[in-house]
Amino acid sequence: MPHPSPEPRVPSPATIAFIGGGNMARSLIGGLIARGQAPASIHVAEPVEALRDPLQRDFGVECADSAATSAAGAGVWLLAVKPQVMREVCAGLASLAQAQRPLVISIAAGITTAQLDGWLGGGLPVVRAMPNTPALLGVGITGLFANPRTDAAQRERAAALLEAVGPTVWIDDESRMDAVTAVSGSGPAYVFLLAEAMQAAGVAQGLSPEASRALVQQTLLGAATMLTRLEEPADVLRARVTSPGGTTQAAIETFEAGGFRDLVARAIAAATERGRQLSAAND
């Protein structure tokens, strides 16, 4: 049975409605509350009881199974549903969106600000965001793009919300958001694949699985820490640990001879193109 539309209320800029209560929404909610956001100012719409109840229990936020119920009165809507159902969700919220004129933020891959604005009735400030899975631990990064109707204060509001799980980077050309998805959105999987390959190679060279896993994990953590904490770019750091004629040089030369750089470029190009296809499929 469809839920009746709630009466429009004057939206509160401090109130955030999460439409969807999955892992990324949960991470953002936890990060916001840790930064001082009042639980009562966070509304969550999640139809799956097994996701909804823990959110209410763990964070004390207001939860409902209806998107319109949670969105009513909220000055910011964060759309955290899968791209495949985004059009349907927006259609159900369009009349409320036109009445309240919220700031809309979407974390769905491949859905453009123009599509979101059109599905919600038009004329709205819309920010497209692409966080990545390390946000689940508070160490993610998010690419952001705002449509022309989004003013400076709304941009700051969107950035502050996403910074609850890590730094943000603004992208001026929305067509480049597919590249953001390919580099950082999908990027953790590339690192996990490298870790898998390194661990297997270590075992092949006689290490125990436990030893190989520990060595790879801490090596990747250490390298990532150096990349983020030191001022030198990646090529300088690589050169610093690559002694002429040494073991590292032997490995690097093997990578290069195998077309490592070209393979990475083609992989990211393929991910970027897939993002464009997802967007086109929703037109």
Rank of each mutant, 00 (worst) to 15 (best):
R155L: 08
E232N: 14
L96E: 06
V216A: 04
A72I: 08
Q115C: 02
L144G: 08
S66A: 14
P47A: 05
A234R: 02
A50D: 15
D151R: 09
A195V: 13
S5A: 15
L28D: 09
G166N: 11
G140V: 10
G21K: 06
A214T: 08
E49A: 15
S279V: 02
R229C: 14
R276N: 13
A67K: 00
A234G: 01
L136P: 08
Q100H: 02
G122Y: 05
A129Y: 01
A214R: 11
V81F: 07
V104N: 03
I42Y: 10
L103G: 12
A223Y: 03
T272L: 03
V183E: 02
M24A: 01
A234S: 09
V169E: 12
L124S: 02
V127C: 04
P2N: 13
A146E: 02
V76L: 13
E88L: 06
S41R: 14
P209T: 14
A223H: 06
P2Q: 15
G73M: 03
G259T: 06
A109D: 01
Q56W: 10
T181L: 04
G222P: 06
D53K: 10
S184A: 06
A94S: 07
F192C: 08
S243R: 02
S279Y: 00
A280D: 09
G275F: 00
I29H: 04
